[in-house]
Design a protein around this nucleic acid. Structure first.
Length: 429
RNA sequence: GCGGCUGUAGCUCAAUGGCAGAGCGUCGCACUGUGGAUGCGAAUGUUGCGGGUUCGACCCCCGUCAGCCGCCCCA
């Protein structure tokens, strides 16, 4: 076999099956976003490096972005995330927009990372943000949207849980343990990594960054305290709102959720898969009240989250929640070609059916009928239509219901109506 | 960026230094106006790529590319 030029590392080809999944996912995202009153928007895929230098982490920009010079020598970045773009778009029209702003987007992003299961260098991401509302109820709305999405795609609270915490609460608690401001930042990273290290290694790491034995013990106790949220007025209101929104089952307090991004200021949340082979974060976000000011706008509070397409698709595949018939032809009808002489008659009939609003494919050459039926079956068509000399002479067409191996003839003029009738009927299984 | 595993027909995998194979799939025929079954037959490979060792390499060695697993990181 000839060598095929390879694709770019970490990219994916969307064959019809994968494309059908992506489109299905996009439609779910749209449906859920719109059900909460959010408007779709999109930004450019190319941004200046400068935009990210402002606030995204050092590592993200320097190590994990595709950056290249344009012909004028300016450094261009393939966007690794959407939030800075969103902040710029809002800042540019800050005075003209109506708040609270509810916007969502679903588009491609790039990160220069080592590809592996659940991680590619090119991926799609749902971003949804509520800007201009600082209330805990606004955070609850975001979490409700995330839960609503899980519900819409068939994921149960047993399969995915949204873990919620609040950075202000954690900061206050750490301060109470006597940690300095810098030490609190390190402690955030420490908390974030607890699941990844052995208890011994985690303890060693804690002492290494400067915690005392007593502080370490207190911190451990803090992270075991599932009632800690009661000490945060924000979280108390948050959970009351989640209750009112009807999504308590999907939501739980987890003092260990910190999230990596520096710009989060308050409530943070992370959707986590509880499914056997796939215990990982599938979506995450939080409150960022200083970000707009950081890109040159007037201060405006915001909260939002992102969900990548790769992990959620793996999860839906594993839980059997992807739709069936992903590869079926969009045409439920195949018009067969009886022989060479009747090829154009078949084309004409196919045209009539299309004009009647029925998606119709026509076999493009005079192969044996058996082969054409096999093809019809393979592409997922439900009906095959035959137009041979007998039918033509009687001004009829033969319609074959493939799944039932049943065939009958009908007047040509009535064919479209009859086909519509059969297609509308629930599939006999 | 670091460490490990894997790479053989369209797919899943055998062959462990001595002629590159099987199952599934594909195609053809049985079946010149009718598909999923059955039978018979056929096609398909630079063993990821490049080098080395050897009389001889899918097999051993080096490099490289890709996928996967972990680290890092996680918008």
């Amino acid at each position: 076999m000839k060598k095929v030029i390879p694709s770019v590392k970490g990219t994916r080809d969307f064959y019809p099956r994968e494309m059908a999944i992506r489109t299905w996912l996009y439609n779910k995202v749209r449906q859920v976003s719109e059900s909460f009153g959010y408007q779709e928007y999109e930004g450019p895929m190319l941004e200046t490096l400068e935009l990210y230098a402002a606030k995204s982490g050092e590592e993200l920009v320097k190590e994990q972005s595709f950056v290249f010079p344009d012909r004028g020598g300016n450094l261009i970045t393939l966007r690794p995330e959407l939030t800075p773009t969103l902040m710029r778009m809002v800042a540019q029209r800050q005075g003209q927009l109506t708040y609270p702003l509810r916007w969502w987007s679903f588009g491609p992003f790039w990160r220069y990372e080592r590809p592996q299961r659940g991680r590619t260098r090119e991926f799609f991401q749902w971003n949804i943000d509520l800007i201009g509302a600082a209330s805990p109820e606004a955070d609850a709305e975001m979490v409700a949207i995330m839960a609503s999405f899980y519900q819409a795609v068939g994921l149960t609270p047993e399969q995915v849980q949204i873990h919620v915490n609040n950075r202000r609460l954690m900061d206050a608690q750490l301060a109470r343990l006597g940690l300095t401001s810098e030490l609190r930042q390190s402690a955030f990273r420490l908390i974030d990594r607890r699941d990844k290290l052995s208890p011994e290694a985690w303890r060693a790491y804690a002492l290494e960054i400067g915690l005392s034995e007593a502080q370490f013990d207190s911190l451990t106790a803090l992270l075991e305290n599932t009632a800690l949220w009661e000490e945060s007025e924000e979280l108390v209101r948050f959970f009351e709102a989640i209750d009112a929104l009807g999504f308590s089952a999907y939501t739980r307090f987890d003092p260990q959720i910190i999230r990596g991004l520096d710009y989060y200021t308050g409530t943070v949340y992370e959707g986590r898969s509880q499914v056997g082979g796939l215990r990982r974060a599938v979506a995450g976000g939080g409150r960022y009240d200083n970000l707009l000011a950081d890109v040159g706008g007037q201060p405006l509070p915001g909260t939002g989250f992102a969900m990548g397409d790769v992990v959620i698709t793996l999860l839906l595949e594993e839980t059997g929640n992807l739709p069936p018939d992903l590869e079926a032809s969009p045409a439920p009808v195949l018009v067969t070609v009886f022989d060479e002489e009747h090829l154009l008659a078949a084309y004409a009939l196919a045209g009539e059916l299309r004009a009647a609003g029925i998606n119709t494919a026509c076999y493009p050459l005079p192969d044996k009928l058996g082969k054409q039926f096999k093809y019809a079956d393979r592409i997922g068509a439900q009906l095959a239509v035959i137009l041979g000399p007998d039918e033509l002479a009687a001004d009829q067409v033969a319609i074959k219901v493939l799944a039932e191996r049943r065939q009958f003839t009908v007047a040509r003029a009535a064919a479209a109506a009859k086909i519509r009738e059969i297609l509308a009927a629930p599939p006999a299984s």
